[in-house]
């Protein structure tokens, strides 16, 4: 019975991911070279850690947080490499810090994301300029304001991976 339920849940989840991916692709944002949307295609949904704060405050211990998400993401190695999945999860979890870093043009979190994507340190200044230009052109638009956090994170992820492609070690 349990096995059947589990299979059913996986099937429904897969269907939902596929549907949302279709919608996403139709928006034209999943452009060539940008890779899959890690939050939808790799299973790193917003539902993974909906309540960090409460969980930590009440239990003071978090079993395997982090690994669960990355494991689910790395189950599709063709679309979601381990490194990209780690970057994607990092961006979703630390979006507030990352968006501030790029607005200021520097910051620990932004450097960490670029390091994870293999961007050499002597070329990171150029990458940051590219990301700043990319996000800066969107952030004041009404459309951006309406976006959910997960979609803003996806925008950020694309900007980082795109900029990193020109600064690989």
């Amino acid at each position: 019975m349990y096995k059947f339920e589990k299979t059913f849940v996986v099937l429904v989840a897969s269907l939902l991911f596929t549907m949302s991916f279709s919608v996403f692709a139709a928006d034209g944002q999943n452009r060539v070279g940008s890779g899959p949307n890690p939050y939808r295609d790799c299973g790193i949904g917003a539902a993974i850690f909906p309540n960090h704060h409460v969980a930590a405050a009440t239990s003071n211990v978090i079993w395997d947080l982090g690994t669960t998400a990355v494991t689910s993401a790395t189950m599709s190695p063709e679309t979601c490499s381990n490194v990209h999945a780690k970057t994607a999860k990092f961006i979703l979890d630390n979006y507030d810090n990352l968006i501030e870093d790029v607005a200021k043009g520097e910051g620990e979190h932004l450097v960490a994301a670029l390091d994870m994507e293999g961007c050499s340190s002597n070329k990171q200044a150029d990458a940051v300029t590219m990301i700043r230009g990319n996000i800066g052109s969107k952030i004041s638009s009404a459309e951006y304001l309406q976006k959910a956090k997960i979609d803003r994170a996806a925008d950020y992820y694309y900007a980082v991976t795109s900029a990193s492609s020109s600064c690989q070690i």
């Binding site: 960090h52 978090i62 079993w63 395997d64 982090g66 990092f90 979890d93 810090n97 979190h109």
Partner: peptide, 11 residues
């Protein structure tokens, strides 16, 4: 338990 350090940094 184990997790990436940034989780604690944020929390």
């Amino acid at each position: 338990s184990q997790t990436d350090y940034y989780f604690h940094n944020r929390n």
